[in-house]
Design a binder for these strands. Structure first.
Length: 433
RNA sequence: GGGGAAAUACUCAAGCGGUCAACGAGGACAGACUGUAAAUCUGUUGGCCAAGCCUUCGUAGGUUCGAAUCCUGCUUUCCCCA
């Protein structure tokens, strides 16, 4: 994609958006010198990035917008070692095949956000495996290890916290490997700044230290705050786990819903971080939102902006359409569903758990519990289904049902579907055939 | 190498021979209230053919009418001494 330039300087831009946690002295001056190259590393632990990495992606986007050159590093080598930061136990190593698959997936996602083609500040993607693959162990400990003392490495929190429980030499070496990445990029790509989450500070500093001791060079760092929700829970997780950028892992509908469900408190922060809207625009939105909070303008703008950029306008529109229908009240919603063409109907429920039940069963009638457990596995046990029914949590076709409900052909929408809900937001679909 | 302590459900954590499917807290899920927010209040949180029955308290045995609770072996973790 192409990137429109802004005039605001990079650091100021990040500052008002609340995206800076810490910065090395001299960093601002570095960016004022002209086109500056900076990099962020992405961990290839899965074949898709999730919305946690979206913060880092946005940083690179801002960097490029303010005229600097972003480098996205995918860690083919570091992925083989495993970053101990924030981990309490030794990490499983990835095998080569998975690693390659993951790198490929991540690469294609990054291409959606950054401009890799045009101009002096075109983004670049690098894989640290390229410079590590022919670097022998002996050469590494002589050329790199010599410059950093064990005392220095042990002082890092990521290491200290693991001294009790144990840590392999492999993970202990991680900071040196990442540090060398920075050195390599500094030397070969004139990359003078490393960006990253605040948990990466220790690793980044090892890099600047290596550059200083090995080559007497200057290098800088900016870290972003780790996102948390206002209630203290982890950002980027929904009931089903991570929220992924890959639509086969997290459907656009669910993706959109994740953002729509953002609390007011978080929404005003997120909109600064995850959208490219200008300060006046955002200030205005927040003001409007405060005046009429129940309209949830912020959440809608946030969800719209991100869904479109991560997926597409079409995906966004489909998600809104689906949301409108699903969250309408009772009869209205059923009428809406009945009116839908079959393919749209299927799109809406893509990504919703589905089960097929034979049409003949409907003729004779199916008890609600059998339908929810035995026939579909929507609930994991009869007890759980009974419990939910008692709690008045289960709806069939948008109306609450009790334990004695029997499903028959008259419950079929479009003669084929039964819409099941647990609570307000969990949908399941039964297909008769 | 010697000595001591501990292992309980998603997590922390009670329990120390029957009244224990196991206190309590957190989390999670649901209900009410709302705005598909937050906060608050309430309920639920092993399974089943459900006033009953079955399987659970690291693991394998044993004592006992009866064990999460006592004994023995094993495994793992932590602490102290060398």
């Amino acid at each position: 994609m192409t990137i429109k330039k802004t005039t605001m300087n990079f650091i100021d831009e990040l500052k008002w958006r609340g995206m800076i946690h810490d910065m090395m002295p001299g960093t601002e001056h570095e960016f004022s010198k002209g086109i500056t190259t900076a990099y962020i590393g992405f961990d290839p632990t899965a074949d898709s990035l999730h919305i946690g990495s979206l913060v880092q992606i946005m940083i690179l986007v801002h960097l490029q917008k303010s005229g600097h050159k972003p480098i996205a590093l995918v860690g083919g080598a570091t992925g083989m070692v495993g970053d101990p930061t924030g981990r309490t136990s030794e990490r499983n190593m990835l095998d080569d095949e998975t690693l390659q698959k993951n790198l490929k997936g991540i690469r294609s996602q990054l291409e959606k956000f950054l401009d890799f083609k045009s101009g002096a500040n075109a983004a670049e993607m690098v894989n640290n495996y390229d410079w590590f693959k022919d670097f022998s162990f002996l050469d590494f400990i002589r050329d790199v290890g010599k410059h950093i003392t064990v005392n220095y490495m042990m002082a890092k929190d990521s290491v200290k916290s693991r001294l009790e429980s144990g840590m392999s030499f492999t993970e202990f070496s991680y900071q040196l490997v990442q540090g060398y990445d920075f050195y390599w990029l500094w030397k070969n790509k004139k990359c003078t700044v490393q960006l990253g989450g605040s948990d990466q500070w220790g690793n980044i500093v090892t890099g600047t230290e290596l550059i200083r001791r090995k080559a007497g060079g200057d290098a800088f760092a900016v870290t972003t705050p780790l996102l948390k929700k206002a209630d203290g829970s982890k950002f980027g997780k929904s009931a089903g786990g991570n929220v992924w950028l890959d639509k086969t892992k997290t459907s656009p509908y669910k993706f959109y819903q994740y953002w729509i469900n953002t609390s007011d408190e978080d929404a005003s922060n997120y909109i600064k971080i995850f959208t490219l809207k200008s300060k006046p625009e955002i200030d205005e939105l927040i003001k409007e939102h405060l005046a009429v909070p129940h309209l949830r303008l912020l959440q809608k703008e946030l969800a719209k902006d991100i869904t479109i950029r991560v997926h597409s306008v079409e995906d966004f529109e489909a998600a809104v359409h689906a949301s409108e229908i699903l969250f309408k009240k009772d009869e209205e919603a059923i009428a809406g569903l009945n009116a839908l063409p079959e393919d749209v109907f299927n799109d809406i429920f893509e990504g919703v758990p589905q089960a097929e039940i034979a049409l003949v069963d409907f003729n004779s009638g199916i008890s609600i519990i059998d339908a929810l457990v035995l026939k579909s596995n929507f609930f994991s046990s009869n007890g759980e289904a009974r419990r939910s029914l008692k709690e008045n949590a289960v709806s069939i076709n948008k109306s609450k049902v009790s334990e004695d409900k029997i499903l028959t052909t008259s419950d079929l929408i479009k003669g084929k579907y039964v819409l099941v809900q647990k609570g307000k937001k969990n949908y399941y679909l039964i297909k008769a055939n």
